[in-house]
Computed example of a mutant assay.
Amino acid sequence: MTATSNKRKSRGFTMIEVLVALAIIAVALAASMRAVGNLASSEADLHRRLLAGWSADNVLAELRLAHAWPSLGVTQFDCSEGNLVLMCTQSVSTTPNPLFRRVQISVTAPGHKGNLAQLMTMFDDETSRSL
């Protein structure tokens, strides 16, 4: 072997090879950071929806425990849960059977588009029931 061939083998990486490797690492890190950001955003949305579901369920439970015939119409009220500000819309409508009413609870958050939770149930007229 000559001295020239020994120099070529021990030369190492070129600047282009190092830059390509750094670019690949940078793209992989950027993708990882985006995935972590999406995961955190999804977790926050899931937390909001969970609290909204609990809030809607609480409203329906309160109506059931009141043993009162719900009045027809739409009402909107604060139903905040935990540290999250929520607005509930209660819609009571008739059904083909006059002994039942349809009650729907929709939960929204100010500044948030769409419903975070929505529950519907039927109430019977306990006052007209014969024992």
Rank of each mutant, 00 (worst) to 15 (best):
A117F: 00
L65G: 08
L51Y: 01
A61S: 15
H67Y: 06
R48K: 13
Q118Y: 01
N115K: 11
R101Y: 03
A26L: 12
A40F: 09
T4Y: 08
R129G: 11
K113L: 11
G53T: 03
R34T: 10
D78Y: 07
V27H: 06
R101W: 02
V74N: 09
L72W: 03
T121D: 08
V20S: 07
C79F: 01
S42F: 08
M87S: 08
F123K: 01
M120F: 04
M15E: 07
A66W: 08
S41H: 11
R102A: 05
L131A: 15
L72A: 11
S130R: 14
P110G: 04
A3V: 11
M122T: 09
T4R: 15
D78C: 05
A30H: 04
A28D: 05
R129V: 14
A28K: 05
R101H: 03
L86F: 04
V20R: 05
G114D: 03
L51G: 00
P70R: 01
R11N: 09
V103N: 00
V36C: 04
K113F: 08
A117H: 00
V107M: 02
Q104A: 13
L65A: 14
G53Y: 00
M1Y: 09
R129L: 15
N97H: 10
L119T: 01
A21I: 06
M1G: 13
S32T: 12
S42H: 10
P70M: 08
T121R: 06
K9N: 12
Q76H: 03
A44S: 12
H47R: 14
F123I: 04
M1A: 13
L60Q: 00
E17H: 06
T108A: 08
E62T: 11
A31T: 05
Q76Y: 02
V74F: 05
A56V: 02
I16K: 05
S10H: 14
L99M: 14
A52Y: 00
K7C: 08
V92C: 00
A109C: 05
L99S: 14
L119E: 00
H47C: 07
T75Y: 03
S93M: 05
K7P: 02
I16H: 05
S71K: 05
T14R: 07
A3F: 11
S128D: 11
R48S: 10
M87E: 08
N115L: 12
L22E: 06
V27A: 13
A44K: 13
E62C: 09
G12K: 04
P70H: 04
P98T: 14
S5H: 13
D57Y: 06
L116M: 03
I24K: 03
A31V: 05
K9E: 06
Q104P: 02
H112F: 08
L72T: 06
Q104L: 09
A31Y: 02
A117V: 01
V74Q: 13
T108I: 10
R129I: 13
R64S: 12
F100N: 06
R11A: 15
L39N: 12
D125F: 02
H67E: 15
A66S: 15
T4K: 12
A28R: 03
A61E: 15
A56I: 01
R49D: 02
A21Q: 04
N115C: 02
D57G: 07
T94V: 12
M87F: 06
A52N: 01
F123L: 11
T127P: 02
L60W: 00
M33Q: 11
K113D: 12
